[in-house]
Design a binder for these strands. Structure first.
Lengths: 251, 251
DNA sequence: ACCTGAACACCGTTCAAGT
DNA sequence: ACCTGAACACCGTTCAAGT
Protein backbone atom coordinates (compact mmCIF):
# COMPACT_ATOMS: atom_id res chain seq x y z
CA UNK A 1 0.00 0.00 0.00
CA UNK A 2 1.26 3.47 -0.85
CA UNK A 3 2.28 5.74 1.98
CA UNK A 4 -0.99 7.32 3.11
CA UNK A 5 0.76 10.47 4.28
CA UNK A 6 1.41 11.27 0.63
CA UNK A 7 -2.25 12.21 0.34
CA UNK A 8 -2.17 14.35 3.42
CA UNK A 9 -3.64 11.72 5.68
CA UNK A 10 -2.05 12.22 9.08
CA UNK A 11 0.04 9.27 10.18
CA UNK A 12 -2.09 8.63 13.28
CA UNK A 13 -5.23 8.43 11.14
CA UNK A 14 -3.57 5.87 8.87
CA UNK A 15 -2.47 3.84 11.87
CA UNK A 16 -5.90 3.92 13.48
CA UNK A 17 -7.51 2.64 10.29
CA UNK A 18 -4.91 -0.09 9.89
CA UNK A 19 -3.46 1.43 6.73
CA UNK A 20 0.11 1.07 7.94
CA UNK A 21 1.72 -2.20 7.05
CA UNK A 22 3.06 -4.20 9.96
CA UNK A 23 5.44 -6.61 8.22
CA UNK A 24 5.17 -10.25 9.13
CA UNK A 25 8.66 -11.09 7.87
CA UNK A 26 11.95 -9.94 9.23
CA UNK A 27 12.91 -9.63 12.89
CA UNK A 28 9.86 -9.87 15.10
CA UNK A 29 8.71 -6.57 16.45
CA UNK A 30 9.00 -6.05 20.15
CA UNK A 31 5.87 -3.92 20.45
CA UNK A 32 2.62 -3.09 18.68
CA UNK A 33 0.65 0.11 18.26
CA UNK A 34 -2.03 -1.30 20.54
CA UNK A 35 0.44 -2.02 23.33
CA UNK A 36 1.96 1.44 23.13
CA UNK A 37 -1.40 3.17 23.11
CA UNK A 38 -2.61 1.05 26.03
CA UNK A 39 0.53 1.88 28.00
CA UNK A 40 0.02 5.58 27.35
CA UNK A 41 -3.59 5.42 28.48
CA UNK A 42 -2.65 3.58 31.64
CA UNK A 43 -0.09 6.23 32.52
CA UNK A 44 -2.54 9.05 31.80
CA UNK A 45 -5.21 7.38 33.90
CA UNK A 46 -2.84 7.08 36.80
CA UNK A 47 -1.02 10.38 36.65
CA UNK A 48 -2.72 12.70 34.19
CA UNK A 49 -1.64 13.77 30.75
CA UNK A 50 1.48 15.47 32.05
CA UNK A 51 2.73 12.09 33.25
CA UNK A 52 2.71 10.77 29.69
CA UNK A 53 6.23 11.18 28.42
CA UNK A 54 7.89 9.16 25.73
CA UNK A 55 10.42 7.95 28.26
CA UNK A 56 7.79 6.74 30.68
CA UNK A 57 5.73 4.96 28.06
CA UNK A 58 8.79 3.18 26.74
CA UNK A 59 10.00 2.32 30.21
CA UNK A 60 6.67 0.80 31.20
CA UNK A 61 7.01 -1.55 28.23
CA UNK A 62 10.61 -2.38 28.96
CA UNK A 63 12.12 -0.59 25.97
CA UNK A 64 14.19 2.50 25.38
CA UNK A 65 12.55 5.81 24.60
CA UNK A 66 13.80 5.85 21.06
CA UNK A 67 12.27 2.52 20.13
CA UNK A 68 8.82 4.15 20.20
CA UNK A 69 9.67 6.24 17.19
CA UNK A 70 9.63 3.09 15.07
CA UNK A 71 5.90 2.84 15.67
CA UNK A 72 4.80 6.41 16.12
CA UNK A 73 6.23 9.41 14.38
CA UNK A 74 5.87 11.83 17.27
CA UNK A 75 4.35 12.26 20.67
CA UNK A 76 1.39 14.08 19.11
CA UNK A 77 0.72 10.99 17.04
CA UNK A 78 0.63 8.87 20.16
CA UNK A 79 -1.72 11.30 21.88
CA UNK A 80 -4.10 11.23 18.93
CA UNK A 81 -4.21 7.43 19.05
CA UNK A 82 -4.80 7.50 22.81
CA UNK A 83 -7.62 10.00 22.33
CA UNK A 84 -9.33 7.82 19.79
CA UNK A 85 -8.95 4.61 21.78
CA UNK A 86 -10.20 6.25 24.97
CA UNK A 87 -13.33 7.75 23.41
CA UNK A 88 -14.75 4.48 22.12
CA UNK A 89 -18.39 4.32 23.17
CA UNK A 90 -20.26 1.12 24.03
CA UNK A 91 -21.92 -0.45 21.01
CA UNK A 92 -25.46 0.79 20.41
CA UNK A 93 -28.17 -1.24 18.70
CA UNK A 94 -28.58 -0.47 15.03
CA UNK A 95 -31.01 0.62 13.79
CA UNK A 96 -31.86 2.60 16.94
CA UNK A 97 -34.60 1.05 19.01
CA UNK A 98 -35.58 4.14 20.93
CA UNK A 99 -37.14 7.49 20.10
CA UNK A 100 -34.69 10.03 18.77
CA UNK A 101 -34.96 12.15 21.92
CA UNK A 102 -33.90 9.24 24.09
CA UNK A 103 -31.15 8.38 21.62
CA UNK A 104 -29.74 11.88 21.82
CA UNK A 105 -29.88 11.94 25.62
CA UNK A 106 -28.12 8.59 25.77
CA UNK A 107 -25.44 9.63 23.32
CA UNK A 108 -24.76 12.82 25.25
CA UNK A 109 -24.66 10.88 28.51
CA UNK A 110 -22.22 8.30 27.21
CA UNK A 111 -20.00 10.93 25.71
CA UNK A 112 -19.92 12.88 28.93
CA UNK A 113 -19.25 9.71 30.89
CA UNK A 114 -16.25 8.84 28.71
CA UNK A 115 -14.74 12.25 29.36
CA UNK A 116 -15.63 12.12 33.03
CA UNK A 117 -13.88 8.78 33.41
CA UNK A 118 -10.71 10.07 31.78
CA UNK A 119 -10.35 13.76 32.53
CA UNK A 120 -7.06 13.95 30.62
CA UNK A 121 -9.11 13.67 27.42
CA UNK A 122 -10.24 17.23 28.05
CA UNK A 123 -6.70 18.48 27.65
CA UNK A 124 -6.35 17.13 24.14
CA UNK A 125 -7.36 19.31 21.20
CA UNK A 126 -10.31 18.18 19.10
CA UNK A 127 -9.74 19.22 15.52
CA UNK A 128 -10.22 18.15 11.93
CA UNK A 129 -7.84 15.27 12.38
CA UNK A 130 -9.88 14.01 15.31
CA UNK A 131 -12.93 13.92 13.05
CA UNK A 132 -11.13 11.46 10.79
CA UNK A 133 -10.46 8.97 13.57
CA UNK A 134 -12.66 5.86 13.85
CA UNK A 135 -14.41 6.61 17.11
CA UNK A 136 -15.23 10.22 16.27
CA UNK A 137 -16.80 8.99 13.08
CA UNK A 138 -18.71 6.37 15.02
CA UNK A 139 -20.26 9.08 17.19
CA UNK A 140 -21.32 11.12 14.17
CA UNK A 141 -22.68 8.06 12.42
CA UNK A 142 -24.72 7.07 15.43
CA UNK A 143 -26.13 10.57 15.89
CA UNK A 144 -27.08 10.75 12.22
CA UNK A 145 -28.83 7.39 12.39
CA UNK A 146 -30.70 8.50 15.51
CA UNK A 147 -31.88 11.58 13.64
CA UNK A 148 -32.76 9.66 10.48
CA UNK A 149 -36.54 10.15 10.85
CA UNK A 150 -36.19 13.91 11.33
CA UNK A 151 -36.98 16.40 8.60
CA UNK A 152 -33.76 18.35 8.91
CA UNK A 153 -31.31 18.70 6.07
CA UNK A 154 -27.86 17.19 6.36
CA UNK A 155 -26.07 20.39 7.35
CA UNK A 156 -28.59 20.99 10.13
CA UNK A 157 -28.04 17.47 11.41
CA UNK A 158 -24.30 17.92 11.37
CA UNK A 159 -24.77 21.14 13.32
CA UNK A 160 -26.85 19.27 15.89
CA UNK A 161 -24.18 16.60 16.33
CA UNK A 162 -21.55 19.26 16.87
CA UNK A 163 -23.79 21.02 19.38
CA UNK A 164 -24.50 17.90 21.36
CA UNK A 165 -21.00 16.54 21.59
CA UNK A 166 -19.63 19.97 22.33
CA UNK A 167 -22.11 20.42 25.13
CA UNK A 168 -21.48 16.99 26.63
CA UNK A 169 -17.74 17.52 26.61
CA UNK A 170 -17.91 21.09 27.84
CA UNK A 171 -20.03 20.03 30.81
CA UNK A 172 -17.63 17.26 31.69
CA UNK A 173 -15.01 19.99 31.68
CA UNK A 174 -17.13 22.36 33.73
CA UNK A 175 -17.78 19.67 36.29
CA UNK A 176 -14.13 18.82 36.54
CA UNK A 177 -13.08 22.40 36.90
CA UNK A 178 -15.69 23.51 39.35
CA UNK A 179 -15.80 20.60 41.73
CA UNK A 180 -12.93 18.41 40.68
CA UNK A 181 -9.51 17.72 42.00
CA UNK A 182 -8.36 21.23 41.21
CA UNK A 183 -10.21 22.70 44.12
CA UNK A 184 -9.37 26.11 45.39
CA UNK A 185 -10.56 25.79 48.94
CA UNK A 186 -10.52 29.45 49.80
CA UNK A 187 -11.61 29.52 53.42
CA UNK A 188 -14.56 31.67 54.53
CA UNK A 189 -12.26 34.29 56.04
CA UNK A 190 -10.49 34.57 52.69
CA UNK A 191 -13.75 34.98 50.79
CA UNK A 192 -14.94 37.75 53.06
CA UNK A 193 -11.53 39.41 52.83
CA UNK A 194 -11.92 39.26 49.06
CA UNK A 195 -15.47 40.62 49.21
CA UNK A 196 -14.16 43.58 51.23
CA UNK A 197 -11.46 44.35 48.69
CA UNK A 198 -13.88 44.11 45.78
CA UNK A 199 -16.53 46.28 47.37
CA UNK A 200 -20.29 46.03 46.96
CA UNK A 201 -20.65 48.73 44.35
CA UNK A 202 -18.23 47.29 41.81
CA UNK A 203 -20.39 44.29 40.94
CA UNK A 204 -23.90 45.24 42.05
CA UNK A 205 -25.61 42.11 40.75
CA UNK A 206 -23.01 39.66 41.97
CA UNK A 207 -22.30 41.35 45.31
CA UNK A 208 -25.05 39.60 47.31
CA UNK A 209 -23.59 36.20 46.44
CA UNK A 210 -20.10 37.34 47.33
CA UNK A 211 -21.10 38.73 50.69
CA UNK A 212 -22.96 35.59 51.66
CA UNK A 213 -19.90 33.54 50.79
CA UNK A 214 -22.02 31.62 48.33
CA UNK A 215 -20.20 32.44 45.13
CA UNK A 216 -17.54 29.76 45.17
CA UNK A 217 -17.71 27.91 48.42
CA UNK A 218 -21.47 27.66 48.60
CA UNK A 219 -24.22 26.32 46.44
CA UNK A 220 -23.54 28.27 43.26
CA UNK A 221 -21.09 27.39 40.54
CA UNK A 222 -19.42 24.82 42.67
CA UNK A 223 -21.45 21.74 43.44
CA UNK A 224 -21.25 18.81 41.06
CA UNK A 225 -24.98 18.17 41.14
CA UNK A 226 -25.52 21.64 39.69
CA UNK A 227 -23.64 20.60 36.60
CA UNK A 228 -26.04 17.70 36.09
CA UNK A 229 -28.91 20.14 36.18
CA UNK A 230 -27.18 22.56 33.85
CA UNK A 231 -26.38 19.87 31.28
CA UNK A 232 -29.88 18.47 31.40
CA UNK A 233 -31.23 21.98 31.00
CA UNK A 234 -29.02 22.74 28.00
CA UNK A 235 -29.76 19.38 26.42
CA UNK A 236 -33.52 19.74 26.74
CA UNK A 237 -33.25 23.17 25.15
CA UNK A 238 -31.44 21.64 22.21
CA UNK A 239 -34.05 18.90 21.89
CA UNK A 240 -36.84 21.47 21.98
CA UNK A 241 -35.00 23.38 19.25
CA UNK A 242 -34.73 20.29 17.08
CA UNK A 243 -38.43 19.62 17.49
CA UNK A 244 -39.20 23.09 16.16
CA UNK A 245 -36.81 22.59 13.23
CA UNK A 246 -38.42 19.25 12.46
CA UNK A 247 -41.86 20.80 12.49
CA UNK A 248 -40.71 23.67 10.27
CA UNK A 249 -39.01 21.23 7.90
CA UNK A 250 -42.37 19.69 7.17
CA UNK A 251 -43.81 22.99 5.98
CA UNK B 1 -2.04 43.62 54.90
CA UNK B 2 -1.77 39.97 55.91
CA UNK B 3 -0.60 37.50 53.32
CA UNK B 4 -3.76 36.63 51.38
CA UNK B 5 -2.50 33.15 50.58
CA UNK B 6 -2.95 32.30 54.24
CA UNK B 7 -6.68 32.20 53.62
CA UNK B 8 -6.33 29.98 50.60
CA UNK B 9 -6.58 32.84 48.15
CA UNK B 10 -4.37 31.95 45.21
CA UNK B 11 -1.51 34.35 44.73
CA UNK B 12 -2.61 35.35 41.24
CA UNK B 13 -6.05 36.30 42.57
CA UNK B 14 -4.49 38.46 45.24
CA UNK B 15 -2.27 40.13 42.66
CA UNK B 16 -5.15 40.77 40.27
CA UNK B 17 -7.17 42.46 43.02
CA UNK B 18 -4.22 44.55 44.11
CA UNK B 19 -3.92 42.84 47.47
CA UNK B 20 -0.18 42.38 47.18
CA UNK B 21 1.83 45.24 48.55
CA UNK B 22 4.19 46.85 46.08
CA UNK B 23 6.53 48.74 48.40
CA UNK B 24 7.22 52.35 47.55
CA UNK B 25 10.38 52.46 49.65
CA UNK B 26 13.60 50.61 49.09
CA UNK B 27 15.35 50.01 45.78
CA UNK B 28 13.07 50.85 42.93
CA UNK B 29 11.66 47.82 41.20
CA UNK B 30 12.71 47.15 37.67
CA UNK B 31 9.37 45.75 36.57
CA UNK B 32 5.69 45.66 37.47
CA UNK B 33 3.03 42.96 37.31
CA UNK B 34 1.35 44.85 34.49
CA UNK B 35 4.52 44.97 32.41
CA UNK B 36 5.18 41.27 32.87
CA UNK B 37 1.62 40.30 32.01
CA UNK B 38 1.63 42.57 28.95
CA UNK B 39 4.89 41.03 27.78
CA UNK B 40 3.46 37.55 28.19
CA UNK B 41 0.35 38.45 26.22
CA UNK B 42 2.39 39.97 23.44
CA UNK B 43 4.46 36.81 23.12
CA UNK B 44 1.38 34.57 23.17
CA UNK B 45 -0.30 36.74 20.51
CA UNK B 46 2.71 36.45 18.29
CA UNK B 47 3.70 32.84 18.79
CA UNK B 48 0.99 31.01 20.69
CA UNK B 49 0.96 29.82 24.25
CA UNK B 50 3.86 27.44 23.70
CA UNK B 51 6.06 30.43 22.95
CA UNK B 52 5.46 31.85 26.41
CA UNK B 53 8.40 30.72 28.48
CA UNK B 54 9.74 32.42 31.55
CA UNK B 55 13.02 32.96 29.73
CA UNK B 56 11.36 34.65 26.78
CA UNK B 57 9.16 36.89 28.88
CA UNK B 58 12.12 38.00 30.95
CA UNK B 59 14.28 38.49 27.90
CA UNK B 60 11.70 40.67 26.18
CA UNK B 61 11.81 42.97 29.21
CA UNK B 62 15.58 42.98 29.38
CA UNK B 63 15.90 41.01 32.61
CA UNK B 64 17.04 37.56 33.58
CA UNK B 65 14.59 34.71 33.88
CA UNK B 66 14.91 34.49 37.62
CA UNK B 67 13.97 38.08 38.24
CA UNK B 68 10.37 37.25 37.27
CA UNK B 69 9.99 35.09 40.36
CA UNK B 70 10.13 38.21 42.48
CA UNK B 71 6.77 39.24 41.03
CA UNK B 72 5.09 35.98 40.21
CA UNK B 73 5.40 32.77 42.17
CA UNK B 74 5.22 30.42 39.21
CA UNK B 75 4.51 30.26 35.51
CA UNK B 76 0.94 29.16 36.27
CA UNK B 77 0.48 32.36 38.20
CA UNK B 78 1.60 34.38 35.22
CA UNK B 79 -0.74 32.47 32.89
CA UNK B 80 -3.68 33.14 35.19
CA UNK B 81 -2.94 36.85 35.16
CA UNK B 82 -2.60 36.80 31.39
CA UNK B 83 -5.93 34.99 31.09
CA UNK B 84 -7.68 37.57 33.21
CA UNK B 85 -6.17 40.56 31.46
CA UNK B 86 -6.94 39.14 28.01
CA UNK B 87 -10.60 38.39 28.72
CA UNK B 88 -11.56 41.92 29.71
CA UNK B 89 -14.69 42.85 27.82
CA UNK B 90 -15.55 46.35 26.62
CA UNK B 91 -17.51 48.32 29.20
CA UNK B 92 -21.27 47.89 28.90
CA UNK B 93 -23.80 50.53 29.97
CA UNK B 94 -25.22 49.96 33.41
CA UNK B 95 -28.07 49.45 34.01
CA UNK B 96 -28.54 47.61 30.69
CA UNK B 97 -30.30 49.68 28.04
CA UNK B 98 -31.45 46.83 25.86
CA UNK B 99 -33.86 43.94 26.17
CA UNK B 100 -32.41 40.95 27.98
CA UNK B 101 -32.36 38.85 24.82
CA UNK B 102 -30.20 41.40 23.05
CA UNK B 103 -28.02 41.72 26.13
CA UNK B 104 -27.38 37.98 26.17
CA UNK B 105 -26.61 37.87 22.46
CA UNK B 106 -24.19 40.75 22.84
CA UNK B 107 -22.46 39.21 25.83
CA UNK B 108 -22.04 35.87 24.03
CA UNK B 109 -20.75 37.65 20.95
CA UNK B 110 -18.20 39.70 22.87
CA UNK B 111 -17.02 36.67 24.80
CA UNK B 112 -16.59 34.68 21.62
CA UNK B 113 -14.81 37.58 19.99
CA UNK B 114 -12.31 37.83 22.85
CA UNK B 115 -11.47 34.16 22.48
CA UNK B 116 -11.39 34.38 18.73
CA UNK B 117 -8.94 37.25 18.85
CA UNK B 118 -6.60 35.35 21.16
CA UNK B 119 -6.86 31.64 20.42
CA UNK B 120 -4.26 30.81 23.07
CA UNK B 121 -6.92 31.61 25.68
CA UNK B 122 -8.60 28.36 24.71
CA UNK B 123 -5.62 26.38 25.91
CA UNK B 124 -5.84 27.72 29.44
CA UNK B 125 -7.97 25.88 32.00
CA UNK B 126 -11.03 27.69 33.34
CA UNK B 127 -11.57 26.61 36.91
CA UNK B 128 -12.66 27.85 40.31
CA UNK B 129 -9.68 30.13 40.53
CA UNK B 130 -10.64 31.73 37.23
CA UNK B 131 -14.05 32.55 38.70
CA UNK B 132 -12.37 34.62 41.40
CA UNK B 133 -10.53 36.82 38.92
CA UNK B 134 -11.85 40.32 38.21
CA UNK B 135 -12.90 39.90 34.60
CA UNK B 136 -14.66 36.58 35.12
CA UNK B 137 -16.63 38.20 37.88
CA UNK B 138 -17.42 41.12 35.60
CA UNK B 139 -18.95 38.77 33.04
CA UNK B 140 -21.12 37.07 35.65
CA UNK B 141 -22.17 40.41 37.11
CA UNK B 142 -23.14 41.74 33.73
CA UNK B 143 -25.12 38.62 32.84
CA UNK B 144 -26.95 38.74 36.16
CA UNK B 145 -27.83 42.39 35.68
CA UNK B 146 -29.08 41.65 32.16
CA UNK B 147 -31.32 38.94 33.61
CA UNK B 148 -32.53 41.08 36.51
CA UNK B 149 -36.09 41.41 35.21
CA UNK B 150 -36.48 37.66 34.74
CA UNK B 151 -38.43 35.47 37.13
CA UNK B 152 -35.72 32.85 37.52
CA UNK B 153 -34.18 32.04 40.87
CA UNK B 154 -30.51 32.76 41.47
CA UNK B 155 -29.27 29.23 40.84
CA UNK B 156 -31.10 29.13 37.52
CA UNK B 157 -29.53 32.41 36.52
CA UNK B 158 -26.09 31.17 37.45
CA UNK B 159 -26.76 28.07 35.35
CA UNK B 160 -27.69 30.29 32.42
CA UNK B 161 -24.48 32.30 32.72
CA UNK B 162 -22.44 29.11 32.75
CA UNK B 163 -24.32 27.83 29.71
CA UNK B 164 -23.84 30.98 27.73
CA UNK B 165 -20.18 31.53 28.40
CA UNK B 166 -19.46 27.87 27.92
CA UNK B 167 -21.22 27.90 24.59
CA UNK B 168 -19.53 31.08 23.38
CA UNK B 169 -16.10 29.75 24.29
CA UNK B 170 -16.75 26.26 22.95
CA UNK B 171 -17.80 27.68 19.60
CA UNK B 172 -14.71 29.81 19.40
CA UNK B 173 -12.82 26.58 19.97
CA UNK B 174 -14.84 24.67 17.41
CA UNK B 175 -14.26 27.35 14.84
CA UNK B 176 -10.55 27.39 15.50
CA UNK B 177 -10.24 23.65 15.33
CA UNK B 178 -12.38 23.05 12.27
CA UNK B 179 -11.30 25.84 10.02
CA UNK B 180 -8.34 27.43 11.74
CA UNK B 181 -4.64 27.30 11.32
CA UNK B 182 -4.50 23.64 12.28
CA UNK B 183 -5.86 22.50 8.98
CA UNK B 184 -5.50 18.96 7.84
CA UNK B 185 -5.67 19.44 4.11
CA UNK B 186 -6.21 15.84 3.16
CA UNK B 187 -6.36 15.89 -0.60
CA UNK B 188 -9.36 14.40 -2.46
CA UNK B 189 -7.40 11.28 -3.40
CA UNK B 190 -6.59 10.71 0.27
CA UNK B 191 -10.23 11.09 1.30
CA UNK B 192 -11.41 8.58 -1.26
CA UNK B 193 -8.61 6.23 -0.22
CA UNK B 194 -9.84 6.57 3.35
CA UNK B 195 -13.46 6.02 2.30
CA UNK B 196 -12.39 2.79 0.60
CA UNK B 197 -10.62 1.53 3.69
CA UNK B 198 -13.56 2.38 5.93
CA UNK B 199 -16.14 0.78 3.69
CA UNK B 200 -19.74 1.84 3.17
CA UNK B 201 -21.32 -0.63 5.59
CA UNK B 202 -19.33 0.34 8.65
CA UNK B 203 -20.92 3.78 9.05
CA UNK B 204 -24.17 3.57 7.10
CA UNK B 205 -25.42 7.04 8.03
CA UNK B 206 -22.12 8.83 7.54
CA UNK B 207 -21.03 6.91 4.42
CA UNK B 208 -22.76 9.16 1.85
CA UNK B 209 -20.85 12.18 3.13
CA UNK B 210 -17.57 10.28 3.09
CA UNK B 211 -18.01 9.04 -0.44
CA UNK B 212 -18.86 12.47 -1.78
CA UNK B 213 -15.73 13.85 -0.12
CA UNK B 214 -17.92 16.25 1.79
CA UNK B 215 -17.13 15.15 5.33
CA UNK B 216 -14.03 17.18 6.01
CA UNK B 217 -12.98 18.92 2.85
CA UNK B 218 -16.43 20.01 1.77
CA UNK B 219 -19.27 21.96 3.24
CA UNK B 220 -19.82 20.01 6.44
CA UNK B 221 -17.95 20.36 9.70
CA UNK B 222 -15.35 22.49 8.08
CA UNK B 223 -16.42 25.90 6.95
CA UNK B 224 -16.18 28.80 9.35
CA UNK B 225 -19.55 30.22 8.38
CA UNK B 226 -21.17 27.00 9.59
CA UNK B 227 -19.92 27.70 13.07
CA UNK B 228 -21.67 31.07 13.03
CA UNK B 229 -24.90 29.31 12.19
CA UNK B 230 -24.36 26.64 14.84
CA UNK B 231 -23.63 29.18 17.58
CA UNK B 232 -26.61 31.30 16.65
CA UNK B 233 -28.77 28.18 16.62
CA UNK B 234 -27.58 27.05 20.04
CA UNK B 235 -27.92 30.53 21.49
CA UNK B 236 -31.46 31.01 20.25
CA UNK B 237 -32.36 27.65 21.76
CA UNK B 238 -31.02 28.82 25.11
CA UNK B 239 -32.96 32.07 24.87
CA UNK B 240 -36.13 30.16 24.03
CA UNK B 241 -35.49 27.96 27.06
CA UNK B 242 -35.08 30.97 29.32
CA UNK B 243 -38.33 32.41 28.03
CA UNK B 244 -40.13 29.23 29.04
CA UNK B 245 -38.49 29.29 32.48
CA UNK B 246 -39.47 32.90 32.92
CA UNK B 247 -43.05 32.15 32.00
CA UNK B 248 -43.12 29.16 34.35
CA UNK B 249 -41.56 31.25 37.15
CA UNK B 250 -44.56 33.52 37.06
CA UNK B 251 -46.96 30.65 37.73
C1' DA C 1 15.81 44.59 48.46
C1' DC C 2 16.44 43.31 44.15
C1' DC C 3 18.75 40.89 40.48
C1' DT C 4 22.10 37.31 38.73
C1' DG C 5 24.52 32.84 37.55
C1' DA C 6 25.14 28.31 38.05
C1' DA C 7 22.98 24.18 38.68
C1' DC C 8 19.25 20.54 38.87
C1' DA C 9 16.06 17.55 36.99
C1' DC C 10 13.62 17.15 33.45
C1' DC C 11 11.53 17.38 28.29
C1' DG C 12 11.00 15.70 22.75
C1' DT C 13 13.71 14.49 19.02
C1' DT C 14 18.15 13.82 15.93
C1' DC C 15 21.38 10.80 14.39
C1' DA C 16 24.92 7.47 13.94
C1' DA C 17 26.10 3.24 15.76
C1' DG C 18 25.32 -1.43 17.22
C1' DT C 19 23.38 -6.42 16.56
C1' DA D 1 15.07 -4.50 10.45
C1' DC D 2 14.91 -3.28 14.82
C1' DC D 3 16.74 -1.29 19.01
C1' DT D 4 20.28 1.54 21.60
C1' DG D 5 23.26 5.41 23.45
C1' DA D 6 24.92 9.68 23.20
C1' DA D 7 23.90 14.17 22.17
C1' DC D 8 21.22 18.52 21.22
C1' DA D 9 18.39 22.15 22.36
C1' DC D 10 15.30 23.18 25.21
C1' DC D 11 12.03 23.52 29.70
C1' DG D 12 10.56 25.43 35.02
C1' DT D 13 12.48 26.13 39.32
C1' DT D 14 16.08 25.91 43.40
C1' DC D 15 19.43 28.21 45.75
C1' DA D 16 23.39 30.75 47.13
C1' DA D 17 25.84 34.60 45.73
C1' DG D 18 26.45 39.24 44.24
C1' DT D 19 25.48 44.54 44.51
Amino acid sequence: MADPTEHGIPRAVAIAWGMVQTPQRGPSRGMSHEQIVAAGIEIADAGGLAAVTMQRVAESLGFTTMSLYRYVSSKDDLLLLMQDAATRLPAAPWPPEEEWQAGIRRLAGELREAYRRRPWLLELPRNQTTLLMPNSMAVVDRALSVMAPLRLDMSQKVAVVMNISMMAIAYAQLELELSGSSRVAVDPAGLSQLADVIGAERFPALAPLLEDGEWIGGGYAGASSDVDVELAMGLEWIIAGIERLDAAGGA
